[in-house]
């Protein structure tokens, strides 16, 4: 069976789902072995497009007004700030950034849903593979709402590729820590094509195409992950985060629990209320 149309894939998925419902047996052998934990690798793994250097050299196809936001973010980072990365206050990275997999991710494949579980913040992506259509109203989430199709591209009778489309993504999001922004209109669509490397089953590839109103054209990149033994490690950002916001200003907390500047020459916080007579 060669790569098939979406209709064909949907029909196959629906047929499989029906048989599961009838026999109540999930034939694991029909799906690829994506067990274990998957983690990005390589020196450039922190950048959205690992084939290019970080920052402006990513050449994100941003519209001019969004390119200015990126440039300002990079300048702020160079000065010691965090740019416009919402993640350092423990927020969700959202789609598509969560698929950078700088912290491990793992998959739970069931006939009607494939779960992508992210160690960072223990977030769960549900990729519905039961053939249902897009709901009229999407609930809206930083990881969006995902519908997927399993495909048997080489016709060996076993699915090998998961095609995913994600919509309904909301919240302030950037592609990576340098701060290339997505449009705030929350109209982003992300398409993914996930499959094991043909020669190395311990490498998983994810071709990610982002369609966003801040871009001049769809932006396609390839992320790759390496399999690791399955060990879950709770990642609780809020319990260890040393960044602190007071009003609109950012500070650091020292190991001895005192306020510190994040940038050279940063002014201390305004303590006028401590000088005023207290009620």
């Amino acid at each position: 069976m060669l790569d098939r149309s979406a209709m064909g894939a949907l029909a196959l998925a629906a047929a499989l789902a029906m048989s599961v419902a009838g026999a109540k047996a999930f034939d694991d052998a029909s799906y690829p072995d994506w067990s274990g934990y998957w983690l990005a690798f390589g020196a450039a793994r922190g950048s959205f497009d690992t084939s290019r250097p970080k920052g402006l050299e990513q050449q994100a196809p941003l519209k001019p007004e969004f390119q200015k936001i990126l440039e300002a973010s990079i300048a702020d980072i160079a000065a010691g700030g965090q740019g416009n990365d919402p993640g350092y206050h423990c927020g969700s990275h959202g789609m598509p950034r969560v698929m950078l997999a700088l912290e491990p991710i793992f998959f739970v494949i069931l006939p009607q849903t494939t779960y992508v579980i992210l160690e960072r913040l223990s977030q769960v992506r549900r990729i519905f593979t039961d053939g249902h259509a897009w709901p009229v109203q999407l609930p809206g989430a930083s990881v969006g709402y995902s519908i997927g199709q399993w495909i048997d591209t080489d016709g060996d009778g076993r699915y090998d590729t998961l095609q995913v489309e994600t919509r309904g993504i909301n919240g302030t999001r950037v592609y990576d820590s340098n701060g290339a922004p997505l449009h705030p209109d929350n109209s982003t669509i992300v398409k993914e094509r996930i499959s094991l490397d043909k020669s190395d089953p311990n490498i998983l590839h994810n071709e990610i195409t982002t369609i966003d109103d801040a871009l001049t054209r769809p932006w396609t990149i390839m992320r790759s992950y390496r399999r690791h033994p399955a060990v879950w490690d709770e990642y609780v950002c809020a319990a260890t985060n040393e960044h602190l916001a007071i009003g609109h200003d950012d500070y650091l907390l020292s190991a001895d629990g005192l306020l510190m500047p994040v940038k050279k020459g940063q002014k201390p916080p305004d303590l006028r209320y401590f000088d005023a007579p207290q009620p």
Binding site: L258, L259, P261, K267, P269
Partner: peptide
């Protein structure tokens, strides 16, 4: 309440 220690500034 005392002002926070700002010695790192």
């Amino acid at each position: 309440q005392q002002r926070p220690d700002l010695k790192y500034f």
